Amino acid sequence: MNSFYKSIRLTRSVHTCRALLKETPQNLKGKKHSSQIWLMRQLRDPYVEKAKQENYRCRSAFKLLEINERFKILSPGLTVIDCGAAPGSWTQVATNLTNAHSKKEGPVGKVYGIDKLPFYPIEGATTLGNMDFTSAKTQETLYKLLQGDKVDVVLSDMAPNASGERHMDHYNIMLLAYSALKFALQISKVDGTLVVKVWDGDKSQQFEQNLLKFYNSVKIVRPDATRNESTEQFFLARGFKGLKTS
């Protein structure tokens, strides 16, 4: 693990303490309490600043970077689909690591970012905004772009808008997780990889068992960039077995 992630582990509490000593920013005045909490949390978060420094659109980039550093799921020449890509930080990471932007010598990958929302283009990636990855129309568009080829890695950092009711939020994110799995089964190469986010709950174990029906190995990963108060975790499924056609 590189020095950045080690330093984050060692200094997270120190960084937070220093942030607590800072004067409350003026732009909190008049905002709702929930908004004040969010803004203060952003100020205390080292990954927020790091994302700005490295030109990532969101701090979540570091979750995928760490997953890749630990498990080597992305490399030059691979074809990747990022489901629920907006605002695009995972697509940025995938583009860099697969060399989809052709900025390095060697194999050149392909990266496709899909989201129901519009989002700004990313150099080297094909961005499909205003498109639902589960729809037949979107999949038809993808297959045309892929020219019938399958993909190496399917990513999903999707999450529903949180209601604050844990069981409902868990249920809703599991619906998205199963949508990502169903999509991955249709579009992945044999030996392909799926990374999908969930919020932990009573349906997580069953989801893991379902993944094992289609993938040779499944790991549960909680990157350092995940906030302490979050129940977020990622299922990393590797070695897609393929679908029986008979």
Rank of each mutant, 00 (worst) to 15 (best):
K104M: 06
I122W: 07
C58N: 14
K31H: 05
M40A: 15
G88I: 04
A125F: 06
N2E: 07
I114P: 02
T226N: 15
T226D: 13
E49H: 10
K32Q: 09
K104E: 02
L146I: 05
Y120A: 06
F235T: 05
S230H: 06
I67Y: 08
L155D: 03
P121A: 09
E23V: 09
S179L: 14
R59D: 10
S246K: 14
Q36R: 15
H170W: 12
S60T: 07
V190W: 01
F240H: 14
N2Y: 02
V154P: 07
E208S: 11
S163E: 05
N216D: 02
M131H: 06
E49M: 06
V108I: 15
F240K: 14
L10P: 00
K116C: 07
D149I: 00
P76G: 03
D152Q: 07
F234Y: 13
S13A: 13
R238V: 09
M40P: 10
A85P: 07
T11C: 00
R227Y: 03
G106S: 05
K150N: 09
D200I: 00
K219Y: 03
L74S: 03
N96D: 10
R9C: 03
E66V: 06
A51N: 11
E123R: 04
T126A: 06
S246A: 14
F214V: 07
S35F: 10
G129E: 09
K32H: 10
V190T: 12
T193H: 12
L243Y: 08
V196W: 13
C58E: 12
G106N: 04
K203C: 12
G77W: 01
E229R: 15
V108F: 06
E165K: 13
H33K: 10
E54N: 14
E232M: 02
A177V: 02
K219E: 08
V48S: 11
Q92R: 00
M174V: 06
W90E: 04
K189R: 12
K197Q: 08
A177S: 14
L21E: 09
A184D: 11
S156T: 04
Q36S: 02
F240G: 12
G88S: 07
Q26V: 14
P46G: 13
D200N: 05
R9N: 07
A177Y: 05
L236Q: 03
G129F: 13
K72P: 09
R227G: 07
S89M: 06
F214E: 14
L74V: 02
D191E: 11
D202N: 09
L64D: 13
A159P: 04
P87K: 05
V195F: 13
E105C: 02
R59V: 02
P118C: 04
G77E: 02
H101A: 15
K144E: 11
T91K: 05
K182M: 09
T245H: 14
I73P: 13
H167W: 13
I187W: 00
W90L: 04
H167F: 11
K103A: 04
K32V: 00
T138G: 01
F235E: 08
N130L: 12
G201R: 00
F4C: 01
S188A: 11
G77A: 03
C83D: 04
K31I: 04
